[in-house]
């Protein structure tokens, strides 16, 4: 690991004031410390933001304000999250291990890097790690990579479960930075790789997430489902966050769908949502909606399985949510 200077920030403004080129903010460290050990991240300065006073979960305006430094385990166990945002609690509990959830922060979960094996191996080329060096995943091992929204430069996926639920809940991220405060919606925080896969999000250097804000819960019932290679402590092959509101006449009044494990971002399935609005809540229509979304999938030679897996997971989850 390359030597670095360490400072613990006192508050948000202090953290931002300490930021200079070569600085990285440190939350729970469950991803960043690992990346530093691997040589993937080489900060000159670490500014520790894990003990900033962004550690509360509070009800506000019918919604919820979640401090950026709240630990994943505390958020999942919070009574308001379990009662009003069960899909978020499910997504959090589906991620990582008890130890990691105890350490990892909410903002760190959003900003964690892909687990693409080429990204994590400094002896390999990777456009995300070294722009312009190439993408060995495209001709190589890409079983767990993207099927949608990827580019010739990068086929990595975003690894978070929590972010998929937040995309379906239309959360907003409050950010402070050298040029002041702003609010960034999810989806919208993460970006597709395009020709700049080294940029995971739209955040500018020095910007720091302070709060994640949830609007009031959408009408209907919700669920988070995740398919993975072992029953626990594994990243998603495909996951889905779904909200379904069915009217008394059996038609869909509202629908939110977001997919994990398929794209460089938590993927909001807007085409499927549009296809379902006003349609009968039947398996036939769920299949049609899933296909409307997955028509734009461009699977790689060895991850085509994710297309039917996504379709089946969407259909099964919507069927479960149908009264």
């Amino acid at each position: 690991m390359r030597p670095f200077e360490y400072a613990r920030a006192l508050d948000g403004p202090d953290a931002v004031a300490r930021f200079r080129p070569g600085t990285m903010y440190l939350g729970g460290g469950t991803n960043l410390v690992d990346l530093m050990r691997l040589g993937v991240a080489e900060p000159d300065h670490l500014v520790d933001v894990s003990r900033l006073p962004f550690d509360r979960v509070e009800a506000s305006d019918g919604g919820l304000r979640i401090g950026a430094a709240v630990r994943n385990s505390d958020l999942a166990a919070h009574p308001l999250v379990r009662e009003r945002y069960p899909m978020l609690a499910r997504a959090l509990l589906a991620g990582a291990s008890g130890q990691v959830r105890n350490m990892a922060t909410v903002a760190g979960n959003l900003l964690q890097r892909t687990r693409c094996p080429y990204f994590q191996d400094v002896t390999k080329a990777c456009n995300k790690r070294v722009p312009g060096s190439g993408c060995p995943a495209i001709p190589g091992d890409h079983r767990n990579h993207a099927i949608i929204g990827h580019s010739e430069a990068c086929v990595a996926v975003h690894p978070s479960d929590m972010a998929v639920a937040l995309a379906a809940l239309e959360a907003r991220v409050h950010v402070t930075g050298p040029d002041g405060d702003r609010v960034v919606p999810i989806p919208g925080l993460h970006r597709l790789p395009g020709t700049e896969p080294h940029r995971d999000t739209v955040l500018e250097p020095g910007e720091l997430i302070t709060t994640v804000e949830l609007p009031s819960p959408p009408a209907g019932s919700s669920q988070y489902r995740k398919v993975r290679e072992r029953a626990s402590f594994a990243f998603a092959l495909v996951s889905v966050a779904a909200v379904l509101d069915v009217g008394g006449d059996g038609t869909v009044r509202g629908c939110r769908l977001a997919l994990g494990g398929v794209a460089h971002v938590p993927w909001r399935a807007e085409r499927a949502e549009r296809a379902l609005l006003g349609a009968p809540a039947t398996e036939e229509e769920f299949v049609r909606a899933a296909d409307a979304e997955l028509d734009q999938a461009r699977p790689l030679p060895r991850n085509g399985y994710k297309v039917p897996l996504s379709r089946n997971l969407i259909v099964r989850t919507l069927r479960e949510l149908t009264p």
């Binding site: 460290g29 410390v33 690992d34 894990s50 990691v100 350490m103």
Partner: peptide, 18 residues
């Protein structure tokens, strides 16, 4: 795994300075 302030944590992922 150790307990940090009573919470189980991976000691390999915690920098001592933190």
């Amino acid at each position: 795994t150790v307990l940090i302030d009573g919470r189980r944590s991976n000691a390999c992922l915690a920098l001592a300075v933190t």
